[in-house]
Design a protein around this nucleic acid. Sequence first.
RNA 1: GGAGAGGUGGCCGAGUCAGGUCGAAGGCGCUCCCCUGCUAAGGGAGUAGGCGGUUUAUAGCCGUCUCGUGGGUUCAAAUCCCACCCUCUCCGCCA
Length: 416
Amino acid sequence: MINLRLLDDETYRAGAILKGATSEQLDELASAEELRRTMLTEVENLRSQSNAVSKEIGQASPEDRPAKIDAANVLKTELKEKEAALSVQQAAVDALVLHIPNPAHESVPGGGEEDFELVITVGAQAPPPPMDHGEFGASLGWVNTEKGAEVSGSRFAYLQREAVLLEFALVQWVMQKLVARGFIPTVPPVLVREQMMIDAGFFPTDENQVYAVTEDELYLVGTSEVPLAGLHRGDRLDLADLPLRYAGFSSCFRREAGTYGKDTTGIFRVHQFDKVEMFIWSDPAKSWDEHELLLEIEREILDDLALPYRVINVAAGDLGNPAAKKYDCEVWLPSEGAYRELTSCSNYTDYSARRLGTRAKGESGTEFVHTLNGTACAVGRMLLFLMEHYQQADGSFAVPDVLQPFCGFTTVGARN
RNA sequence: GGAGAGGUGGCCGAGUCAGGUCGAAGGCGCUCCCCUGCUAAGGGAGUAGGCGGUUUAUAGCCGUCUCGUGGGUUCAAAUCCCACCCUCUCCGCCA
């Protein structure tokens, strides 16, 4: 949700237009909001009169009351009409606001999906291994997609054997890294109410990507970002306590509607996976530093695992409504000969906090905090990259050095 | 799943049965001032938030809304009615 007060601000408008909003849209909202305020003033004036009359009635003598009550009733009728009109107008404004994106930061390139800015490329583009991650996972008995499909449908899989131990090693390794950086480890609820989905900005836009448990009116989260955002909903934080950094671990559930036939190999795109997510509540003045911190952590994880990757600064048109800026870390997937997204981190500035109602109190008053989120480790997808980069010529697997202390073995011999 | 109790300001807590003088007693905490060798104690004053208007202003002033949330009754609701949400206790069940 944007700040309606800034609709006339030229830089603000320019940023929003870069994100795909039209200047007609912005004007329409601005005039709807102006009308809303005019109507609000009228309503409040009537209420004021009405309150004054009521007070008089309380103090009036019994014989004076009937006449005053009649007068109050006239005001009341008028007030009801104006209030009804106001709430219609309010709804109109609300509907318009939902489609206005958070303006892009000045450092974000314009354009769409192909117009990203390449920030850095690290490592060499390795040649394809003997087996792609799908074949390799099956050969070691790590991934069973057939049984997954039988039991739950396509895009579900069983993860087994060393892959599970590697998952736990990854989670533990990443968590410890984050704890060392001051993140609070958190296992959040994965079923949330509809209101939480709305407040976190996932409804109504992404409603068709979310599993619903209709019987209980709950929804399965697609990322722990949702419940982490709920952790300080409606709170007034102290600026001195910021940043508050959380590391959430949860299973994530995504319907992946509209992706039929895409990424069908192995576990690249599945309905259920585990993820360690970073979420930061930041002092508005320092959120860009926090954003760089998120990127630094994501890069450190990739560097430690010696994965070749590139970082892109996603173009404005490809950002999605809440993000003012987003970095994607794309890791080289040898079997496809392409960089594929593994992690990303975004600065939502005050866009999400305004809807969540999360403010911070500092010396210069109270203001909305900034929120940021980033992937620390999307486990399934991380494993798949490891399966290609750490696959040996003889079909065995060499455990990355940094994970060895956490999983208790260093190699996995070829099977079959 | 069954039964009961309860949600009031930063915190605790009165007010709800008898609707108006209640955005709310009292206490704690916090801020400022006084007193005081220091500290403690003591005296005085102040202290909820959102929104709108006015304004150079996040100051002040005016208005409005908010006593879990949303409706309703009424000239008038913390107080009466309805629905929902949440918390706690007991029983049952359970990893």
